[in-house]
């Protein structure tokens, strides 16, 4: 039987005293340096870290800024560093921090715009660069009237895992390479390119290779592997990148060994 969380539903909620929660604060228009502020928050074991942050915003300090929406782990807004580990705060339960020391900071590796909000423009641009959409060769597009492209469940299974990325940016925050060199295309964007490359309906791999197989693309990755460890959706971007390396290498061999195969 799979390991399970203690069943909150049956046991009921335990509310015990309060704890100090440390939050990273930064005002771009007031000071140049960020600071850490502590708040006293109830320790409820049905609460996630995001609930505690909402409590602070609602009841203690309205000036705290952060992103959140769905609070069910699918919109990807609420990624933050919790005790130096990238986490979706809507899925990180307080009771999993029994030491009751929790420090929340913006995802690392990105410029901070305000408090827990970081600048995502870089990722949005990279996402556009890898052409994350279905590409068909000219003249090979099926007219709508002719219905769907056929795709067997087995063919779907080949790329399905890589469709599950919610763009939460935890993988970038976990990647020391990206922190050192933000030119790196990065885990999520490469995994999404790979998602389309592996889709039986797609014919656009060559168009993506220019960015993917570049130095800033897959070859910048030195396989730390932490991106896959922190991924909340088990997308395994590290594997996506290594697989892309293998196929790009094979491309190279084919091109060198069988020069005519290209044409």
């Amino acid at each position: 039987m799979a390991t399970r969380r203690t069943c909150l539903w049956k046991r009921g909620v335990k509310v015990s005293e309060t704890f100090e929660m440390e939050i990273f604060r930064y005002y771009p228009d007031k000071d140049n340096e960020p600071f850490i502020k502590s708040y006293e928050v109830p320790f409820r074991d049905d609460w996630v870290v995001l609930d505690a942050i909402n409590y602070i915003k609602d009841e203690i300090d309205g000036t705290l800024s952060y992103r959140w929406s769905c609070r069910m782990g699918v919109c990807g807004s609420c990624g933050m560093m919790v005790n130096s580990v990238p986490k979706l705060t809507c899925s990180a339960f307080l009771k999993d921090y029994p030491s009751r020391k929790i420090r929340v900071e913006p995802l690392q590796g990105f410029p901070v715009e305000r408090d827990l909000i970081f600048d995502m423009d870089d990722f949005m641009n990279k996402l556009t660069e890898v052409k994350p959409y279905l590409l068909r060769k000219e003249g090979e597009e099926k007219p709508l009237e002719e219905g769907e492209y056929l795709q067997s469940p087995a063919e779907l299974a080949h790329y399905k895992q890589y469709t599950l990325c919610i763009n939460c940016m935890l993988c970038y925050a976990a990647c020391p390479i990206y922190a050192l060199d933000s030119n790196f295309v990065g885990p999520a964007a490469i995994a999404l390119a790979q998602r389309y490359n592996l889709d039986s309906r797609d014919q656009g791999r060559n168009q993506r290779q220019e960015v993917i197989a570049s130095h800033e693309g897959i070859w910048e990755c030195t396989f730390v592997g932490e991106c896959s460890v922190v991924c909340p959706k088990d997308v395994d971007p590290a594997a996506a990148i290594q697989r892309a390396k293998v196929s790009s290498t094979l491309d190279w061999f084919k091109e060198k060994m069988i020069p005519r195969s290209k044409g």
Partner: peptide
Amino acid sequence: MTTYRKPVSNTW
């Protein structure tokens, strides 16, 4: 707008 970038320490 100014942003804050946490410097990467040598001992990261």
